[in-house]
């Protein structure tokens, strides 16, 4: 019978994770009897490993989001190259004021989100909750403006699958007067709106999910769950929220601003 040879050993763990842990946490109330932070999950050695893992997880998730929206941006690019005039004409139908205000609202909400992260890092519970609430309000405002915009478009039958698909005739008249040529094929204009509703709809869905997540954060933040030692949920929701902001930063010029010149 052969015996296996290897210079492997299995020696007891040399890194006492709890020792590191105790140095980091001075407040005895945040630790349970075994010296663990209550938020530490059993399969992690310490809070730092847990934070590294969850942060990496969120970034990896955001990469999948880049690819998810990327498919839509790809479709937009190809179809715009196919139908440049129709896309520029269709873009003029959108009301620039709603897009611009919404951009400002969303950037402001990114600022308040960043501030919320800051106050969770320095452990200011009151201002953390205040800024989370503010972010939620701004996010809801964005969705409200978006809803008004959608309803205007629906009122003019400007949505894919409308019978018949139409756009606001004032814009058509203005276009024909200004450019001196007929408004492009309405079917190709409709293609712009397929992509417009696809992109803004999925973006709005992400906003709704973000607002729900912020609701949970506000609740737990109010109860004092986050501290300078443990604030990854706030930070990670922040990453998600900023990502949704970035998507809009690209959507705004691509959807609202082409064909204004």
């Amino acid at each position: 019978m052969a015996t296996r040879v290897e210079d492997s050993t299995l020696i007891p763990a040399v890194h006492d994770t709890h020792a590191n842990h105790r140095v980091a946490h001075h407040d005895p109330h945040t630790e349970d009897a075994s010296g663990h932070h209550p938020a530490l999950q059993h399969h992690f050695d310490n809070l730092e490993q847990q934070r590294d893992a969850t942060t990496l997880g969120m970034w990896t998730f955001l990469v999948t989001e880049i690819m998810f929206f990327g498919g839509l941006f790809m479709a937009y690019t190809v179809y715009r190259v196919f139908n440049p005039e129709a896309f520029e004409a269709a873009s003029r139908v959108l009301e620039i004021k709603y897009g611009a205000i919404n951009t400002a609202v969303l950037i402001a909400s990114s600022l308040t989100m960043a501030m919320a992260v800051y106050f969770s890092q320095i452990g200011n519970r009151k201002l953390l909750v205040a800024f989370l609430g503010l972010t939620m309000i701004l996010g809801t405002a964005f969705l409200g403006i978006k809803a008004i915009e959608y309803s205007h478009k629906f009122a003019h039958n400007t949505y894919p699958g409308a019978v018949p698909f139409e756009v606001d005739h004032h814009v058509v008249e203005e276009y024909e007067r200004e450019k001196g040529r007929p408004f492009p094929d309405i079917n190709r204009v409709q293609m712009f709106y397929v992509i417009y509703y696809g992109m803004t709809g999925i973006h709005a869905l992400h906003m709704v999910i973000g607002i729900i997540a912020l609701g949970f954060l506000t609740f737990y933040g109010y109860r004092g769950a986050y501290s300078p030692e443990y604030n990854s949920p706030v930070e990670l929701t922040g990453l998600y929220w900023h990502f949704v902001d970035i998507v809009w930063i690209f959507l705004f010029p691509l959807l609202y601003l082409i064909g204004r010149h």
Binding site: I96, T103, I107, A114, M115, Q121, L257
Partner: peptide, 27 residues
């Protein structure tokens, strides 16, 4: 920990750029 002051600066820059992108769209 990033200080709020730099957040305000970034916010200001983003707002300026938003205004800029709207303005240049008309040229």
């Amino acid at each position: 920990i990033v200080q709020p002051k730099s957040y305000y600066k970034i916010f200001g820059a983003l707002m300026v750029l938003t205004a800029l992108t709207v303005v240049v769209a008309f040229f």
